[in-house]
Design a protein around this nucleic acid. Structure first.
Length: 319
DNA sequence: ACCCGACCTGCTAT
DNA sequence: AATAGCAGGTCGG
């Protein structure tokens, strides 16, 4: 049931789908077919097919029923580039790959999806995280629609994830020790007021938001920062994982090279350093550096070929 | 305040 | 072929 297509003015230099949808912010986007430049995924309760040329995003919703959607790509502007250039000048290591990834855009995700996706991320790799998140949606989400023979499901509600037997089921489905984290966090969120409570955290200052999220079982400092950055609107949150730790030790804080693990103190030090170097969009800059170090982007060369025909075009401010 | 080992799973390297 | 190492960490001691 294809419907209207939305064209959104947005230069590829400021938002590259291939990087943004594949760099480990969201685990729900798939290429329409192998090698395709079109992406398909779920935002809220709507399946979208996204593509772009050098100047526009082209967005097609697949409705099964009438819906609308809230802004998904964050609106942080061009000033961020200055911050990034400043950072690159200070530390040129890896700068070529970094420039390839500068067109990553932070998403503004739904907090529920963000929380449970990143609970799945602990001590895990992107491929398996993607598989687990997909499994979570198929098990506990509701069927939205079928597109070209593929079924698409919504992300599960908190109440469903808090239900009886969820932990045992998830363990049997290969979630490992994360099964308990998911079930218990869902129950904690429900006790505090459910989705409404989680959304209300967006009103808090960064530090408070960060510590509230950390009260959830399975959400530590790193996952909490992922949520702050990717769904709470805190563009200065710095998730420090093993990868960012390596980058920091290599390019910014050489005295960390001798350390084996990220302690709370080192975690804080790296975040503060990034915020000092990159300013208010430090979290975005962190994602550029993180993406540049990801294996899948090592051989990146996004050559644009376009010439997309369009019909039934409609203007839309945001997705 | 700080550090350490255990923990599920599945892919990779040796 | 078997085994250690690692992946966007967190928890409890």
């Amino acid at each position: 049931m294809a419907s209207k297509i939305f064209r959104i003015s947005c230069p590829r230099s400021e938002l590259d789908l291939n990087i943004t949808l594949q760099c480990g912010q969201s685990f729900r986007w798939r290429r329409v077919s192998p090698g395709s430049e079109k992406w398909r995924g779920v935002v809220g309760n709507v399946v979208w097919t996204l593509s772009q040329d050098d100047s526009y995003l082209i967005c097609q919703p697949h409705f099964s029923h009438s819906q609308y959607t809230t802004p998904y790509f964050s609106q942080h502007g061009r000033k961020r580039k200055k911050d990034m250039e400043l950072g690159i000048q200070i530390k040129p290591t890896n700068s070529e790959k970094v420039l390839d990834c500068i067109s990553v855009r932070m998403l503004r995700q739904d907090p529920v999806e963000n929380v449970f996706s990143f609970i799945c991320s602990s001590n895990n790799n992107i491929q398996r995280i993607t598989m687990l998140v997909d499994r979570l949606c198929k098990l506990y989400g509701s069927l939205l629609t079928t597109v070209e023979g593929t079924t698409w499901h919504s992300f599960p509600t908190v109440a469903v994830l808090a239900g009886d037997g969820v932990e045992d089921t998830l363990r049997a489905e290969g979630f490992g020790y994360r099964a308990k984290f998911i079930h218990k966090s869902a129950k904690q969120i429900l006790e505090r007021g459910g989705e409404k409570w989680l959304h209300s955290l967006r009103l808090l200052p960064y530090k408070e938001c960060h510590s509230q999220l950390m009260s959830l079982h399975g959400v530590g400092a790193k996952v909490s920062d992922c949520i702050c950055l990717m769904s709470m609107g805190h563009l200065d949150a710095i998730p420090v994982d093993t990868h960012v730790f390596q980058i920091a030790a290599r390019d910014y804080l050489p005295h960390l090279k001798t350390r084996k693990t990220v302690t709370d103190k080192v975690y804080q030090e790296i975040g503060d350093h990034f915020r000092t170097v990159f300013g208010e969009y430090a979290g975005w800059a962190h994602s550029v550096l993180f993406s540049a170090d990801l294996k899948i982007f090592q051989a990146l060369r996004p050559e644009s070929q376009n010439g997309n025909k369009k019909q039934g075009i409609k203007k839309c401010k945001h997705l």
